[in-house]
Design a protein around this nucleic acid. Structure first.
Length: 215
DNA sequence: AAGATGATTTTCT
DNA sequence: GAAAATCATCTTT
């Protein structure tokens, strides 16, 4: 499974010092249209403090979901699982799927309107040794390329469902924008497959799923 | 109480 | 490119 690396990996885009200094995004950032938030989250930093270890990664891939379209968990039905999607923006929606994978989402938009951004891939920044131990010692470019992988590397599971991302042990922090931001259809869904709601920057840390690019 | 489903990953050919 | 693995949640008895 080790894939041969043709080019050396670029140096980390942000230093540990920059990660430490980054401030959490304010709730107003999340209280907007889900596709706008998904696009603007690319480049921001997810930080999970566990004991003395600070696990951090830069967002390189996101997808938007909202209750008006059938790929959303909250389409038509408000069940206990998706209740957090109807709550305040800036909180984590963490759910389990396919038998072994946790998915990290960020709730957006107004209260009582279900919408969230799925975080699909992160560039590892700090705590890489701990991340590798969570991921069976895989190389750095395999640690968080995919939503299930990043949750495993970042030690994110059901305990963080509903967590406030503007403060606490799991936060999303500000960082300079990246460009160009590419746009495509979403990955791994069977409904509303044409919406151009996946946002990413090209590079070694983006997931491999197939999607149609949108100009 | 049981069956279907899945915003994935891995491993196979 | 295809399929299995695997279990919380939801839907249907």
């Amino acid at each position: 499974m080790l894939q041969t690396r043709k080019r050396p990996l670029p140096p980390a885009s942000l230093s540990a010092t920059e990660v430490r200094a980054a401030k959490p995004l304010p709730r107003a950032f999340y209280a907007r249209d889900v596709a706008t938030v998904a696009r603007e989250l690319v480049g921001k930093i997810v930080v999970h403090r566990t004991g003395r270890t600070v696990l951090a990664g830069r967002i390189v891939e996101t997808e938007a979901y909202e209750q008006t379209e059938p790929a959303c968990h909250a389409y038509e039905r408000r069940t206990p699982r998706v209740e957090v999607l109807y709550g305040r923006p800036g909180h984590a929606y963490v759910y389990f799927t396919y038998g072994s994978h946790w998915m990290l989402n960020v709730v957006t938009g107004p209260v009582d309107f279900a919408a969230a951004v799925l975080i699909r891939a992160l560039e590892p920044l700090t705590g890489i040794t701990t991340m590798r131990s969570h991921r069976g010692g895989q190389p750095v470019q395999e640690l968080m390329r995919g939503p299930g992988k990043l949750a495993q590397a970042m030690a994110i599971d059901a305990r963080l469902n509903g967590a406030d991302l503007t403060r606490g042990t799991l936060t999303v922090r500000d960082a300079p924008s990246l460009s160009p931001i590419r746009v495509s259809t979403r990955i791994g869904i069977t409904k509303a497959v044409d919406l151009p709601w996946r946002f990413f920057v090209e590079g070694p840390y983006v997931s491999r799923g197939r999607a149609r690019l949108v100009p």
